[in-house]
Amino acid sequence: MVRREAEITVIGGGVVGLATAFGLLRAGRRVRVLDGADSDLRASQGNFGLVWLQGKGAGFAPYAQLSRDAVALWPDFAAEVQEASGIDLALDQSGGYEFFTEADEFSAFKADLEAQEATLGNRFSHEVIPGDDLRRSFPEIGPGVVGATFCPLDGHVNPLRLLRGLRVAVTALGGEIVQGAKVEKVTPVASGFEMALENGSRLDAPRVVLCAGLGAAPLAAQLGFATRVRAQRGELLITEKLETRLPFLSSTIRQVDEGGLQIGGTKAEVGPDDRETREMMAGLAQHAVTVLPALADVRVLRAWGALRVMSPDGYPVYTRSAAHPAAAMVTCHSGVTLAAFHGTKLADWLEDTAAAPDLEAFDEHRFALSASA
């Protein structure tokens, strides 16, 4: 059956797609979200939940600006999602640390933060803390930590509550979410686009926003996009719940609101393989114990691998199809940090209003320019 109710169809029901749909609904559009199969590679169900600014865009000023805008939007965005859904996202933006056990890495990251501050000016602040000074504030930090950096703008959220909250909020605002709607083919037609789903049904859409993460590659080509995403694996550990709260948040060790610790930070270019590995798990455990020796006695309950969605240069892509202007593509690996931007300001860009943010630096033409340089 062909359905015509929605003005805009968002392909992809993860955090990026749902936040984008939320923003379009706030802007008064009629929106349908097509959520794929349960077996799809879903970055939204395995991420670390960070709302993070430190180090982002050190080598690419537009990304530093975008990330700064996003973290500033998060408090109001979280409140809006909670109001619409009734779900507390457990947002905490009280600042975060990056811990370093290697002097060279510490020095390199300090340079990154200096570059970031040169771009952002008074919109960014950070501290560089030598190891001994850090242990005076946090005696539990191990002697193997050579130093840390701190940014008061960093924080985290419960990522599964964010995903659920966005689903409920999109529905509450009048959006339609179609479950099990994996799109196999998109065909441009006079009225917009016709989509063939894996289950045999067909839908049409005047406008399409492709937010399908790792599932975007075949559909992107059909819509005339040049961007090809790749998978990057990250692995995580979850510990038992602790009675006491950690006195800090870091990008590799965070305590979730339910009490357990989430330990992560690995990167591996292994293609669409989300299996955990003993070597990486051992490295995560060793890092955690080096930072906090007391964790040696804490039990690990679960471990898994999850896939990040990476563009060719690692930065977000916001682009419209030159061949089919009614199609747009949105992809990034910082879906949680950027969710507040996607759920608010991105709608102005998609609608091409006077208030549209300047996202020219994130257009996919940069890949063609790089290839010809």
Rank of each mutant, 00 (worst) to 15 (best):
L41Q: 05
L120S: 04
A294Q: 12
S44C: 05
F124T: 12
G343A: 06
A323N: 09
D112N: 13
D348S: 10
W74A: 11
L113H: 01
A355I: 10
T227L: 00
H342Q: 15
G200S: 12
G36T: 02
V16W: 06
V51A: 02
P130I: 08
N47M: 01
A355R: 13
G55Y: 14
A306P: 12
V71N: 00
F362Q: 02
Y63R: 01
A226Y: 08
F48S: 11
V330E: 02
G283E: 11
E102A: 09
E240Q: 15
Q82P: 01
F60W: 14
A169V: 08
A70M: 11
N158D: 00
S372L: 11
A368H: 05
S334Q: 01
E351D: 10
E351I: 02
E364K: 08
G213R: 07
E127W: 13
A103E: 09
V145Q: 00
G175Q: 08
A118C: 00
F77N: 07
A327T: 13
A268E: 15
V291M: 09
T244D: 15
G271Q: 06
E117R: 03
R302K: 13
T20G: 00
E351M: 08
Q222Y: 04
R123T: 02
P206K: 11
T252V: 11
A196M: 06
A72P: 01
G86R: 08
P218S: 04
G55C: 11
V145E: 02
V51N: 01
A328D: 06
L18T: 14
A58K: 03
F48I: 04
A282M: 08
L91W: 09
L346G: 13
G271W: 14
T290Q: 03
G95P: 13
A108K: 13
I8E: 00
V208R: 07
D132L: 11
A70V: 00
L301V: 09
R30P: 01
Q54V: 05
